[in-house]
Structure formats: structure tokens, C-alpha cells
């Protein structure tokens, strides 16, 4: 494998559902690549199949045609190099914060002492020190999503996939978590190396991403792939920032 090999290759992925013999196309020939250190956002109106796309990319769903390669091999759902953060948090209500974070490590059969140490490290990294033994129902939405992020990072993935991770949180909490994700991503000592995020908020995409992939609605088709070359940290009041937002907005409508 050469150095030029991208981390993730999405090759002409299409997805259709069949209902009474009728074909409903959800995704139409999506094609892009993602390299190490990339931060890519997929934006599109609701119902454009972006969540389905993300599930196909992490191997939880299968494409009707096309394929997804991770490090040159077909993707598998339980690949520990890829971790997923859910919009609904998807925490196990009967497990404590620490046990939720240890979930992926348990599946890898790490020994309990190591599991605990790793979980502690990432619980601290997302700022939940002291809540190790709390149950998800005792936490606020923002804290729940921190657990979701810590759980994904605990298996030390190369690629972090996020499905509208901040859309069920209030605006202030969401902004804090966005900055924290950026910090984790830019920190070379901590995972992840690359982030792929699905969102319906154009502003969020411009704020976070190096590259934005714009999908159209029904079926989801790639409308554009844009390099956002704004310097970081980005300022939402910057006219250039707004230039990008407007451009993407006009592409969708």
C-alpha cells in the first residue's frame, strides 16, 4: 500500500428501496474520498439520505450498488478503526457512564484494568470526570452526547463518523461540543485522525469542515464538493464565512 492510499473511498454508492416492486432511489452514485487528517461534512436537506449514506459508510447498511473501502478493504460494521456517534446518543440505559464507554473495549476483550484506565482517560477528555458511575438518565443531553463521543473515542479509531451529533442539543451546548470536537481532532495525541460528519446545518458544516459535500434531495446526488479554506479558529461573523454559507445554501435550494 502506497502512502497515497486514502483512508476511506466511497465508490459510486447507490441505495434503493423496493416497495411492491416499485423502486425508490435514496442515494445515487455518491463518490468521494477521505484522507487522514480530513474533516469532512456532508450537508443536505432532510430526507436526502445522508444518514443512510453514513450507515453504509460504517458498514451498518449495505449499498444496492457500489462499494466502500476503508484502508483499501471493504468496510465491516465492527471495524475498530471506525467509530460512530449517534444523533439519539444510543447509550445503553442500564449501563453506567464508564460501562458505556467501555463497551467497544469489552467487545475487543481487553482486560478489565486496561478497560477502566482507557475509559477514565476519555471520560476526562470530554470533561465528565466524576460522573463515571452515573446512569445516562441522570445526565443532561449535552452530557449524554459527551458519553457518546467518549465511547466512540475509547476504541481509538482512525475515523470518527457522526450522525447529526448536535441537533438534539440546545444551541449553547452544541457550540461547546463543536469546539471540543475540533480540539480532539487537531490534537495529534488523541484520536480521531479524521472526522466524517453528517448534518443539516450549513453553518455547522462551514464552521467545522475542511471539505463540505453537498447532497440534493430525493434521490441524494452529489451537487458539489467544496474546500473551505478559511483559517481556524473560524469566526461566524466574518463576511467570508457568510459567503460560504450563502453559496452552499444556493446550491441546495
Amino acid at each position: 500500500m502506497g502512502d497515497a492510499q486514502p483512508l476511506l473511498q466511497v465508490k459510486d454508492v447507490s441505495k434503493s428501496y423496493f416497495d411492491n416492486g416499485k423502486e425508490f432511489k435514496i442515494l445515487d452514485r455518491i463518490r468521494f474520498e477521505l484522507a487522514e487528517h480530513d474533516f469532512v461534512c456532508v450537508v443536505g436537506p432532510s430526507g436526502c439520505g445522508k444518514s443512510t449514506l453514513l450507515r453504509i459508510i460504517v458498514g451498518l447498511d449495505t449499498p444496492t450498488s457500489g462499494e466502500v473501502l476503508f484502508e483499501g478493504h471493504p468496510i465491516r460494521a465492527d471495524n475498530p478503526q471506525v467509530a460512530m456517534v449517534f444523533q439519539s446518543f444510543a447509550l445503553f440505559p442500564w449501563l453506567t457512564v464508564a460501562q458505556n464507554v467501555e463497551l467497544g473495549l469489552e467487545a475487543l476483550h481487553e482486560d478489565p484494568a486496561k478497560r477502566r484506565a482507557v475509559a477514565k482517560k476519555f471520560i476526562d477528555a470530554v470533561g465528565l470526570t466524576g460522573f463515571e458511575n452515573a446512569y445516562p438518565r441522570e445526565l443532561s443531553g449535552g452530557m449524554k452526547q459527551r458519553v457518546g463521543i467518549a465511547r466512540a473515542l475509547a476504541i481509538e479509531p482512525l475515523l470518527l463518523c457522526m450522525d447529526e451529533p448536535f441537533s438534539s442539543l440546545d444551541a449553547l451546548t452544541a457550540q461547546n461540543l463543536r469546539d471540543e470536537i475540533l480540539q480532539l481532532w487537531s490534537n495529534p495525541d488523541l484520536p480521531p485522525e479524521a472526522v466524517l460528519m453528517v448534518t443539516h446545518s450549513i453553518e455547522e458544516a462551514v464552521y467545522l469542515a475542511d471539505r463540505v459535500i453537498v447532497l440534493s434531495s430525493r434521490p441524494g446526488r452529489m451537487v458539489a464538493e467544496l474546500e473551505i479554506d478559511l483559517p481556524r479558529p473560524r469566526n461566524r461573523k466574518d463576511p467570508e464565512f457568510y459567503g460560504w454559507v450563502d453559496e452552499i445554501y444556493s446550491l441546495i435550494v
Binding site: 451498518l60 465492527d78 449517534f86 444510543a90 463497551l103 469489552e106 465511547r151 476504541i155
Partner: peptide
């Protein structure tokens, strides 16, 4: 989502 999280984390 719980089912997918379980699959994604290799349970």
C-alpha cells in the same frame, strides 16, 4: 440506534 451501536462496537 441501540442495535446499530451494538453492531458498530462489535458486540
Amino acid at each position: 440506534d441501540l442495535d446499530q451501536a451494538a453492531r458498530g462496537f462489535g458486540l
